[in-house]
Amino acid sequence: MTIFLASIAILGLTGLAGALLLYATSKRFAVETDPREEAVRDALPGANCGACGLKGCADFARECVVRGRLDGLTCPGAGAEGMARIASILGVKAESRERPVAVLRCNGSCEARPRPYAYDGARSCSIMNAVGVGTSGCAFGCLGCGDCVEVCRFDALKMNPETGLPEVDETKCTACGMCVAECPRRLFELRPRGRRDRRVWVACSSRDKGAVARKVCAAACIGCGKCFKACPFEAITISDNLAYINPDACRACGKCVGVCPTGAIHATFTPVAPKQDEN
């Protein structure tokens, strides 16, 4: 009997001594953390995408608390709602900022741009681009292996097997810019969402001359300049046989969409024009 009591006593006492030691050390060497930091971290999406310009969500939270204000710090992933929560945690006024959205500047669906070349290497756009192989003749267009889909942490990109192009889910896109950085052909652009989600952009990146671009892709921008002439707001510039719509000047009237002979200009709405965009 005594042997049991002795063992229990020895174990209990050792445990107690250990607990006291641990308690003392944790008190002595405690790291001061701001409870706000943890609160901010909880309000973040936790994707560690780096779109804020810092190393990750923990870094962002620390930076917020250290600065004590938000000037310039934004998490595109958290959105306006999330940023408002973070602002209230920090006790500052939330900055209202419109969140842009990623758009694909390529229109070369399987139908418009045939893929005559076979490629059986590793399925990665970067690899395809690096070895100089494209499945279509277009040196600028989407390679279609979905590297962008792979890097998107917010599930906002999907490959459409019919068009062979990625599609942006604008409700999920946080404009973190991962796809912009990943695409070896730089096809994504972050553009303002526009008033009532009305926006217009040139869905082509081909800098080839019109005839060359047209030969490989029926939906290519051929730099004809019709949109340039049609635009009442001087929002369109043409350089290297490619039109570009300046989002700050564009009022989303949709006139350019109608005049584009190849349907290279996309709009998120149905423009009032005789010729309509395919989508």
């Binding site: 070349y117 070895v131 100089g132 192989v133 494209g134 499945t135 003749g137 040196a139 080839d208 001359k209 060359v212």
Partner: peptide, 11 residues
């Protein structure tokens, strides 16, 4: 003097 496809497909 123009862009033409190479053997690898890239013009």
């Amino acid at each position: 003097i123009e862009n033409l496809p190479m053997a690898g497909g890239m013009p």
